[in-house]
Design a protein around this nucleic acid. Structure first.
Length: 596
RNA sequence: GCUGGAAUAGCUCAGCUGGUAGAGCAACGGUCUUGUAAACCGUAGGUCCUCAGUUCGAUUCUGAGUUUCAGCUCCA
């Protein structure tokens, strides 16, 4: 049991609380910083977060190597085992105190509070901080902590504000827990797609090509091709019509779509508006192009729902600091699609989209790792969005009721909507726990009007369809990144770029091995023959490093018996099997993996 | 875009305060023709990210740029 003190000054006893311990650790960090770097360092905020804590400081200039020193000071403070006390002040008194302390950020926070707010302060030895608590009564109770990084962070998360210095750390009750967390971080590095993907020769980047423009090497390209064929085939089965639309268009198109006003910064623009007669832009989204396919002829209510899909390459001029491996790039290819539907079809079509997504996530093995986010507009940031409040309230309420009907378990996020409508985002976490959107489904009541997309209804009147913007498997680069980390490079059979590697014991078996290879290639399997080196142990090791699911070993016994020996990833051997039997085995395994 | 790191052989890295570079693995050539995790001998491989500046002399110091990493902000 641990003793705590809350913001009423009450002392109570409870189990070790990780959140409070981490919050207390952030105060110890701040105390250490003040001791080492002096009172010129201004305190901003220092909360506990998911996997640790941080504290933001102004005027602090620390480097990675200084962290050890700071950590030692923190340990010293804990050893002193100061007792925490708490007192409260009214707003006026609190402002007076923080003004005396010259804590400008605390002052700013207090000034924004209500007049009758009671503000609590926690003190430990020579250190006092405004805080709502609770805290550990004795600093010794915090347990074991470690500082990780010192980086920059904007005050209040706004890029217009000053950049402060943020120190991240974590804390656990037991030393073993801390050590296992550190170990976990180390192990995560080996799964990091940006490291593993390069090591496995799935992709690379080249200085001369530029940021966010990775090259998919043969193995990575093979995986993406497998995914794309799978997605296009499945979508055709579900009634989607394929389009192939241009990679760029005149600015006129984007002016109608609203991209020119709302998304220009994110586009690669070819030409100079001031000088050139015609200005082009690479497409950042496929929507307006597929809308033109819709408008190719007059549509009837009987034509709807109309489902378009395209394996679509997009270009977005991301800020230079944003690029990261395959997760965030400037050119990417997405399983894009737009559905033009009648309002009475909307729910069923969204359900259909979600069923498709669900199937894909299941096949990829990501079903357990995703979460749903209902992304709404921010009424306080109108300039970012098309349409008025009424439009947004309507489209959001429609999407919300559909999601509730479908019993989707989601969190809401303000200000994450697309500029033309609310979204259902499907989120996945990377190996370090950082969340990214991999799939998005959007409901759009706006763009059909802008593009004059209409259909003739039963009663002969002209109507606008609702547009669903959706991806089904997401963007191939980002999804590949997630898969690399999910499987630590050990891809399932249907997806792996080399499904089997044929290894010969000596050069005498190469002719037979070629026969085996051709049979497997004809049966549509991806195989390689390694006959360069004669050392079988070495070859097996190579195949293991490449995470090849099956090794086919061929020596003189196999040639004599017209069979092969197979070794799977677990190191188990199957002997005296024929090539045809092996092909059947592979086929049934792939079928199973595709849930068919 | 912002803050702070980093860039040396194909890969992982070493190289003290300025005197143009090394190791292990990989590659290539040869020997061995081998039944399950690195056989032996040999060879080659570098614009020390780029461009300027300081200097008799720069991988090393300074500046600008490029790429890259962590975080922030932005985003699929």
């Amino acid at each position: 049991m641990v003793k705590y003190i809350n913001n009423k000054g009450e002392i109570y006893e409870a189990e070790y609380d990780l959140q409070i311990a981490r919050h207390t650790s952030s105060h110890i960090l701040a105390q250490a910083i003040k001791r080492i770097y002096g009172s010129d360092i201004k305190l901003a905020i220092g909360p506990a977060i998911d996997n640790g804590f941080y504290y933001d400081f102004d005027g602090l200039n620390v480097k990675q190597e200084d962290l050890e020193n700071i950590e030692n000071e923190m340990k010293k403070i804990v050893k002193e085992n100061q007792k925490t006390s708490c007192y409260t002040l009214n707003k006026k008194e609190a402002i007076k105190l923080v003004t005396e302390m010259d804590e400008i950020y605390k002052k700013e926070m207090i000034e924004e509070m209500k007049e009758d707010e009671i503000i609590s302060f926690f003190a430990q030895g020579d250190f006092t901080d405004m805080c709502t608590g609770p805290h550990m009564l004795y600093l010794k109770s915090v347990g074991h902590f470690k500082l990780f990084t010192a980086t920059g962070a904007y005050w209040r998360g706004n890029e217009k504000n000053k950049m402060l210095t943020r120190i991240y750390g974590t804390c656990f009750e037991k030393k073993e827990e801390l050590e296992s967390e550190i170990l976990k971080k180390e192990e995560a590095k080996d799964k990091d797609h940006n490291k593993l993907g390069r090591e496995m020769e799935l992709f690379t980047t080249v200085d001369m090509i530029g940021q966010g423009l990775p090259i998919l090497l043969p193995k990575g390209a093979t995986i993406v091709q497998t995914l794309q064929r799978f997605v296009e085939d499945e979508e055709r089965k579900r009634g989607y019509l394929l389009t192939k639309t241009p990679f760029m268009a005149k600015s006129d198109l984007y002016k109608v779509s609203g991209h020119w006003d709302h998304y220009k910064e994110g586009m690669f623009i070819l030409g100079d508006e001031a000088k050139d007669k015609e200005v082009f832009a690479l497409r950042p989204m496929t929507c307006p192009f597929q809308f033109m396919a819709y408008k190719n002829r007059q549509r009837s209510y009987r034509d709807l729902p109309l489902r378009y899909n395209e394996t679509s390459t997009l270009f977005r001029n991301e800020d230079s600091g944003e690029m990261h491996g395959l997760i965030r790039v400037r050119q990417f290819t997405i399983s894009e699609g737009h559905l033009a539907v009648r309002l009475d079809q909307l729910e069923k079509e969204i359900a259909g989209v979600l069923d498709l997504i669900n199937y894909f996530m299941d096949v990829l093995g990501l079903k357990e790792d995703i979460s749903f986010r209902f992304s709404k507009w921010d009424p306080n940031d109108r300039a970012k969005y098309l349409g008025n409040e009424e439009d947004w309230e309507y489209s959001q309420s429609v999407l919300k009721s559909i999601l509730d009907d479908l019993k989707i378990n989601y969190v809401e996020a303000i200000g994450e909507a697309a500029f033309y409508g609310p979204k259902l985002d499907i989120q996945a976490k990377n190996v370090y726990g950082k969340e990214d959107t991999i799939i998005t489904v959007q409901v759009d009541f706006q763009l059909a009007h802008r593009f004059e997309m209409t259909y003739i209804d039963k009663d002969g009147s002209k109507k606008y369809p609702v547009v669903i913007h959706r991806t089904s498997i997401g963007c191939y680069e980002r999804t590949l990144a997630m898969l690399i980390e999910k499987y630590a490079g050990t891809f399932p059979l249907w997806l792996v770029p080399i499904q089997a590697k044929i290894l010969t014991i000596s050069e005498n078996e190469i002719e037979y091995a070629e026969e085996v290879k051709n049979k497997l290639l004809q049966a549509d399997f991806k195989v390689e023959l390694d006959s360069e080196d004669n050392k079988i142990g070495y070859k097996i090791r190579e195949a293991q490093l490449e995470k090849v699911p099956y090794m086919i070993v061929i020596g003189k016994n196999e040639v004599e018996n017209n069979t092969i020996t197979i070794r799977n990833r677990n190191g188990e051997d199957i002997k005296d099997i024929t090539v045809d039997e092996f092909i059947n085995m592979l086929n049934s395994q792939v079928k199973k993996e595709l849930l068919k």
